[in-house]
Design a protein around this nucleic acid. Structure first.
Length: 454
RNA sequence: GGCCCUAUCGUCUAAUGGUCAGGACAACACGCUUUCAAUGUGUAAAUCCGGGUUCGAUUCCCGGUAGGGUCACCA
């Protein structure tokens, strides 16, 4: 049977189907939620939501030695920040009795046994009696995959009745929670045969498997502490938007087959399809993430952004920004298309709050003007601005007021010193909008100040 | 090393048994502009190699190579 037929047979879009889709994200709190985990969580979430199914969050904390509460907190915070919500929540550490019951059953049926170990501290462990058969499963993404489990030998499924191990707890939980689709990273492909063996021994039904392509670091190896495997929460702290991360992650290993690049969660839920998941691993490219972030910042409402941004400012700028809200909103409107990450706002806006320092040579445009001419131009600009009404002291009006003179004298000759007098920078927004934001009085101050330098 | 997965521009990817192999990010150039940013236009950039099937393969098959994953009393 082909992959397409298999998928078709179990089509969940079929309204006659009685089967409710249930997916799960099952992180281990032995580390933070990194991009790879978020990627897996996203696909599980999208698939569950688009089928009106359930999305379960299960904390796999059977390894008490390595599991930490702070990691669990990090994972939950990260998932919430990204916009995921879950229908059920479990911790494996709270389900020991359930595992024990199944473990005993396996032992009673002689499908597992206590094994005396010659080495190590423990007297014995519980091993699974491997039937040593060939098993195969149909991966929704990769098609048929076959393994010979003989080489797995009698693997360990628990340290003792109270301490089940990963493969065992996963199988029990997935069955108990009635998970229909296991969507997880490709690194779990080789775990699947073990888990199927346990399923068969316990008489459980096998769920569908979909092994997603891995996200690799720039060095083409599995994401780890070395690369971007930092907590998604740190992306939040670095000033990335959750929307940007979601959009970026969604388009890794999946695409709708159109040329549309911008997707919000709603659209993703609507258009996501397991059939269109890629087989090959993808390399994490932060430039692309930056572009999405830039895009979403640019798209944001400036009032909303104005409320958000002060938190990314150093204290001195922060208090200045909060002093005049109307002015701050204008600054944000101006800067939002110049920043890639939220904290970038702190760069190059100090001149709005304090008179800039600069040498008089800065006022010369392309070294082809003498100071006398600069002085004359600035004087004229002062004269024009001074005549303007404070109430209509706005970018467009200012531009119109000086435009005749500017055209007559050469744009750069007038506008360069005008702009530098206000910003003190080689690169900045145009002098009209800066004037508006500064206000008539402060603009005139700065122009006079510049003339004094000459 | 055994087993498993994978292979289209630098990166994320689209497409097809016959296309000028498309888009996006990045890069570069040009336009707009006093500078920056934004924006517009354009350029460069890919089907891993070798066989086979076929009138025709990037596409299907086989082999090679490369990359990745996995081989715990971790998950």
């Amino acid at each position: 049977m082909s992959k397409a037929q298999v998928q078709n047979k179990h089509s969940i879009n079929d309204t006659k189907s009685q089967v409710q889709v249930i997916t799960r994200f099952a992180p281990s709190p032995t580390g933070t939620l990194h991009l790879g985990g978020a990627h897996t969580a996203l696909f599980n979430y999208l698939f569950a939501r688009q089928n009106n199914g359930k999305f379960i969050l299960r904390i796999e904390d059977t390894d008490i030695a390595r599991s930490k509460k702070e990691y669990e907190d990090d994972i939950l915070a990260g998932l919430k920040w990204l916009g995921f919500d879950w229908d059920e929540f479990y911790r494996q550490s709270e389900r020991k009795e359930i595992y024990k019951k199944y473990l005993e059953r396996l032992i009673n049926e002689d499908k597992a046994y206590f094994s005396k170990e010659t080495e190590g501290e423990r007297e014995s462990v519980i091993r699974f009696r491997n039937p040593n058969k060939k098993i195969s499963f149909n991966d929704l993404i990769r098609g048929d995959i076959q393994f010979d489990t003989a080489e797995l030998e009698d693997f360990v499924i628990a340290k003792d009745l109270e301490s089940p191990l990963f493969h065992f707890t996963v199988v029990v939980d997935d069955a108990e929670m009635e998970i229909t689709h296991i969507i997880r990273g490709e690194d779990h492909i080789s775990n699947t045969p073990r888990q199927i063996l346990i399923q068969e021994a316990l008489g459980f039904k096998s769920p569908f498997y979909a092994h997603m392509p891995l996200m690799l670091g720039p060095d083409r190896t599995k994401l780890s502490k070395r690369h971007g495997a930092v907590s998604v929460n740190s992306y939040c702290e670095q000033g990335y938007l959750a929307k940007a991360l979601i959009n970026f992650l969604a388009l890794i290993g999946w695409n709708p087959g159109t040329e549309k690049e911008i997707y919000d969660m709603e659209e993703l839920i609507r258009e996501f399809s397991i059939k269109r998941i890629q087989k090959s691993a993808a390399i994490f490219n932060i430039e692309r993430l930056d572009w999405f972030n830039f895009h979403y910042i640019k798209q944001m409402d400036e009032k909303e952004l104005a409320d958000l941004l002060p938190d990314y400012l150093p204290e001195d700028l922060k208090s200045k920004a909060k002093k005049n809200h109307a002015q701050w909103v204008k600054i944000v409107a101006l800067e939002k298309e110049r920043i890639t990450k939220l904290p970038d706002i702190k760069n190059g806006i100090a001149y709005f709050f304090e008179k800039p320092e600069f040498g008089k040579e800065m006022l010369l445009w392309k070294q082809e003007k003498d100071f006398g001419a600069v002085k004359k131009h600035l004087g004229k600009v002062i004269e024009i601005l001074d005549a303007m009404d404070e109430k209509t002291f706005m970018s467009q009006n200012i531009k119109e007021a000086v435009w005749n003179y500017v055209e007559e004298q050469g744009r750069g000759n007038v506008l360069w010193p005008f702009r530098v007098a206000l910003s003190g920078l080689e690169k900045s927004p145009d002098p009209f909008i800066i004037s508006e934001i500064l206000g008539k009085e402060e603009s005139l101050n700065r122009l006079h100040h510049a003339i004094e330098k000459l």
